[in-house]
């Protein structure tokens, strides 16, 4: 604000030739190209910090997996591979639409840009919906991080509505109501731009529940396809094995995986650490998804306003890079957590 005021004076210098068109040219740069390059380099550097941020979690994963390989192999059976697969596909698709959005901005396809950004948002929301089911399912059966890890031996699938699922759905429900009302109001006032933005955001919030529905449906479908209770049986047997094992065992014991799982000196189950890492990694990833959704929503507002043109599309490009990184992190999380064996 101050900046533009400040430098608009110095602006009269002759060296800046061709930037008067874009209202988003920051005047401490020599040229729009310099501005674009600076933004892009900045985003790449930020992505490097993101990678190192996640690297701490990956190192923790590697350390504990190297120490307790059998615990990781056992514990990961609690995770639902089919839901993980669906989520991977959803995120990959959202990366496609994000890349497409960048292309649309470069080609000045305003409608395509809006559609692609909304689709990306909806996919992100769908991902979170499925994730909510996964979390709620685990919490229902007592699978928390190490400090609260007490799997219920008698838990057999979900019956009725989980309070955890309701808790996780409340923000999405609130968002849905708010955006839907705002969209209706915008429609009534014939504010077309607001209608598109709020409609898109309402759609996004709705996608969360589509995700929840999907996640409810997928296991049924998979069961029908694979035939029967194979997965369920495995999980139950693992649970049984774990809960009965409060006998003593040394931490670095090298027992075959089908013997009683080890317990630490104070009776903790090392499986709790697996789930600590699972919740930490997927939780931090989910926070990044949420942050990405916030920024993409901002892009949506700006693109509805028509800010982005073939000469000014930097923000779409940068956010696209960020979104691909978030996607990429998931591409590593999925096999490391869901596909151990």
């Amino acid at each position: 604000m101050n900046q533009t005021a400040l430098s608009s004076e110095s602006e009269s210098g002759a060296s800046h030739a061709d930037h008067d068109h874009s209202p988003f040219f920051a005047h401490h740069f020599e040229s729009p190209q310099q501005q674009f390059d600076a933004g892009k380099l900045g985003m790449w550097l930020f992505l490097i910090t993101e990678i190192l941020f996640f690297s701490g979690l990956f190192v923790a994963y590697a350390v504990f997996r190297a120490r307790h390989p059998e615990v990781f192999a056992d514990a990961h059976l609690y995770l639902d591979k089919s839901l993980g697969t669906v989520n991977t596909v959803v995120l990959l698709f959202s990366s496609l639409t994000m890349a497409w959005a960048v292309r649309c901005a470069q080609l000045n396809q305003q409608r395509g840009l809006i559609v692609c950004l909304t689709t990306t948002l909806a996919c992100a929301s769908l991902f979170l919906g499925i994730k909510a089911i996964e979390y709620a399912h685990k919490w229902d059966s007592g699978i928390f991080w190490a400090g609260m890890y007490q799997p219920l031996a008698d838990y057999h699938g979900d019956h009725g509505l989980s309070p955890f699922l309701i808790g996780l759905s409340v923000p999405a429900l609130l968002a849905l109501v708010i955006f839907a009302v705002a969209a209706v109001l915008a429609y009534a006032r014939r504010a077309r731009q607001q209608l598109i933005v709020f409609g898109g955001l309402a759609l996004t919030s709705l996608a969360f529940f589509v995700g929840v529905g999907c996640a409810k449906a997928v296991p049924v479908v998979v069961d029908a396809m694979v035939g029967g209770d194979h997965d369920q049986a495995t999980v139950v047997s693992v649970e049984g094995g774990r809960t009965e094992s409060v006998q003593e065992g040394s931490e670095d014991a090298e027992q075959p995986p089908d013997e009683a799982p080890e317990t630490g000196p104070t009776g903790f189950s090392p499986a709790g650490i697996f789930f600590s890492i699972y919740f930490a990694m997927t939780g931090v990833h989910a926070i990044h998804i949420l942050a990405g959704m916030g920024v993409i929503a901002w892009l949506l507002v700006r693109s509805v306003r028509g800010d982005f043109t073939p000469t000014y599309f930097g923000p779409v490009d940068y956010v696209g890079l960020y979104w691909h990184l978030v996607d990429l992190v998931w591409i590593f999380l999925f096999p490391l957590l869901y596909l151990i064996q």
């Binding site: 941020f53 996640f54 690297s55 701490g56 979690l57 923790a60 504990f64 991080w145 190490a146 400090g147 609260m148 931490e251 630490g264 104070t266 903790f268 189950s269 090392p270 709790g272 650490i273 600590s276 890492i277 919740f279 930490a280 931090v284």
Partner: peptide, 23 residues
């Protein structure tokens, strides 16, 4: 990420650094 994990350790007890929980 380290201080975030330590905070989670204090608040939730994720056990990554806590020997009582196998960390």
């Amino acid at each position: 990420i380290t201080v975030l994990l330590l905070t989670a350790e204090l608040v939730f007890g994720i056990g990554i650094f806590d020997p009582n929980l196998g960390g």
